[in-house]
Structure formats: structure tokens, C-alpha cells
């Protein structure tokens, strides 16, 4: 067993992909000479050369579309969009084309690309560099969306993504690249669509993904001190989602709180909440709580940012309000 960070496990995943499939190539802004804005692609240019590791101009729509076209012609491109904020410039390609070409051609063509991108706040990067749009992409039929919170799932989900013949949006959180885990020596894959119970408990179900997992663990630790045992579910995938595991947990704990870094209005967490309330209504002791970022553009100041994104104080007070813990 080797201990790897998420950053290192993704680097390993990319190397595996390049080694195992001659059609794989990687493209994106500053992934080669610069070494990758988050250093995930560090060392790859030196090892694999510029045919396989392609630095692109700052033309998000252009190079994402190029990846789509190349995949339609038999290649297996992995694209890095520096942050999910910049993916808005490629939204036409992702939503109008990647997601729909297989359907509109009635299966004649496929778009087997992986788009890696970086989500999340917490880095004091201000209003245009701190957003969490993975829920948007998860709402689009034709796309698959995953977002790991640890190095084991990062490697496992990537291995599943590379075997997909569909467009996969692979969402990495900017604050989690340093998270370290023991990686099993034996080859494994993490299935896309399957949530995971990270901590078992009987009193409250906490649902989160990606950057909200550390907060879920913090909340759980605090509640444990009060003899409240929480069950933490890491969604890992946002589309598809196997809800069975979630329903089982809700039927056991009867109480649910969802942590979602997106704004309150129209959040993916609200969608999860609505599914639970419709399918498990008779099992619920109270409303499903959703804790989001406040409805403001992200302020730069650390003092303010920490209060805008979901935090331990807001989570505990919400849980107290809903369930009296």
C-alpha cells in the first residue's frame, strides 16, 4: 500500500491511461511546460512528449470542441479545464454538443471524453474563481459527473471514467488535492453512480460530496461528543446516482442534512432533498435540511469567505433548529 495524495493518485491515473491506450492524449491550458496549474500533470510532458500532452491556447470552447471531435473519430481525449469557472466558456460544447451527439445521431456517434476540472471555494480567490457548478452539469442528460473526496476514489473513479464511452465531467476540488490516503496495491475501480457510506451511524444522515466531506466529518465529530451518531454518505457521483443506499440510510436514521457548497437557489442538494422527501416521506422525523453557500458572489476577504461557505457553526445551528441536537 502506498500513501498518495489526490494530486498524486490522479497523476498515477493519467499515466495508466496513457500507458494502456494508444488513443489517449491529454490537452489543456498549461498542463505541459508549466506542469499543470494544480500540478496534477506534472512530469507527463517530459515522459510522454508533446503529441500526447498538448498545451492549448486559452480557448476553452475551441479545445473542448476539439476533444469532442477527436473522440468522435476514435481518439480518447482527456481535457483539463483549469477551473470549472472557465468551463462556462465551453458550456456550448459540453451541453449542446458533448451531451447530445450520441442521442441526436441515435447512437451512430459517441463522445468518449473525460473533462477534468476544478471546483470549489476556500482559496480566497474571489467571486469568479470560487464557484461550484458540478450540479449544473449533473442536471444534463447525456453527461456523467463524478467528484471524489479522497485519493482512493479519485483513482478508482478515473479508472471507471476512462473505460466509459460517454462524456464524463471529472470534478476535482481545489482544496482537496493534498488529501492523503492509503491506496490498495491491487487494481480496483470505483463504479460511477454508487455513493459510499464513509461513517456509519443511526441518528442522523449527512449527505455531502467533494469539498463538503471534510465539513461533514467535522460535524460528525462534534455530534459524537453529544452521543449523536451520524452516518456520512459521500455521493462520489452526481449523475448517475444509485439512490437505494441513501434511502436505506434515511429509513434507519429518519433525519437528513445535506451539505452543498453551491448557492441556496437551485442547488443540487435541493434536488437530492426533493427525491428523499418524495420517496421516504413516511420515514422522516422532520424536514430535510440543506446547507448551502449564502446567496452572494464570493467575497475575497478570508474573514467573509469563511462565513459565506457552509461552515461548522452554520451546520450545527441548522441541525439544532431542525432536530434539537
Amino acid at each position: 500500500m502506498a500513501e498518495l495524495t489526490i494530486r498524486e493518485s490522479l497523476n498515477k491515473a493519467l499515466r495508466e491511461a496513457l500507458d494502456n491506450n494508444e488513443n489517449v492524449f491529454i490537452m489543456g491550458e498549461d498542463i505541459g511546460m508549466y506542469g499543470g496549474p494544480y500540478a496534477v500533470t506534472k512530469g507527463l510532458l517530459e515522459e510522454y512528449g508533446s503529441e500526447k500532452i498538448m498545451d492549448t491556447p486559452i480557448s476553452e470552447s475551441g479545445f473542448v470542441g476539439a476533444a469532442i471531435g477527436a473522440s468522435m473519430a476514435g481518439m480518447k481525449p482527456i481535457v483539463e479545464i483549469m477551473t470549472i469557472n472557465f468551463s462556462l466558456l465551453a458550456m456550448d460544447q459540453i451541453v449542446n454538443h458533448a451531451a447530445k451527439i450520441h442521442y441526436m445521431s441515435d447512437g451512430q456517434l459517441s463522445v468518449p471524453i473525460i473533462i477534468r476540472t476544478v471546483t470549489g471555494a476556500g482559496g480566497r480567490m474571489g467571486a469568479t474563481h470560487s464557484q461550484s457548478f458540478e450540479g449544473w452539469y449533473a442536471s444534463v442528460p447525456g453527461l456523467k459527473v463524478v467528484s471524489p473526496s479522497n485519493a482512493i476514489d479519485a483513482l478508482g473513479l478515473f479508472r471507471s471514467a476512462i473505460n466509459e464511452n460517454n462524456p464524463v465531467i471529472f470534478v476535482e476540488h481545489s482544496m482537496l488535492y493534498g488529501v492523503k490516503n492509503e491506496i490498495p496495491d491491487q487494481y480496483y475501480e470505483t463504479p460511477i453512480g454508487l455513493p459510499k457510506v464513509l461513517e456509519k451511524g443511526n441518528d442522523l444522515t449527512l449527505i455531502a460530496w467533494s469539498g463538503m466531506i471534510p465539513l461533514a466529518k467535522l460535524v460528525s465529530t462534534e455530534l459524537n461528543k453529544r452521543n449523536i451518531n451520524t452516518e456520512i454518505i459521500d455521493l462520489r457521483s452526481l449523475n448517475p446516482i444509485d439512490f437505494e443506499l441513501i434511502f436505506e440510510s434515511v429509513k434507519k436514521t429518519n433525519k437528513v442534512v445535506i451539505l452543498d457548497e453551491y448557492w441556496e437557489t437551485g442547488s443540487f442538494g435541493s434536488y437530492i432533498s426533493s427525491v428523499i422527501q418524495e420517496k421516504c416521506f413516511d420515514y422522516l422525523d422532520g424536514p430535510v435540511g440543506v446547507i448551502n453557500s449564502l446567496n452572494v458572489p464570493m467575497p475575497y476577504s478570508a474573514e467573509l469567505e469563511d462565513k459565506v461557505i457552509p461552515n461548522i457553526d452554520r451546520a450545527l445551528s441548522k441541525i439544532k433548529e431542525l432536530f434539537g441536537f
Binding site: 470542441g65 471531435g69 460544447q93
Partner: peptide, 22 residues
């Protein structure tokens, strides 16, 4: 294919060309 977002298929054409080259 025919594409219905004006200009949207041009990057895809680039990708087809990139694949031919590779």
C-alpha cells in the same frame, strides 16, 4: 452531422482534423 448552434461545430471539425493527424 448538422449542428444548430451557430459556430458550435467548428471546434468539433478541428477535433476531427486532429484525430486524422494523430
Amino acid at each position: 452531422g448538422g449542428y444548430a448552434i451557430v459556430g458550435g461545430h467548428l471546434p468539433i471539425a478541428i477535433g476531427l482534423g486532429l484525430a486524422l493527424k494523430k
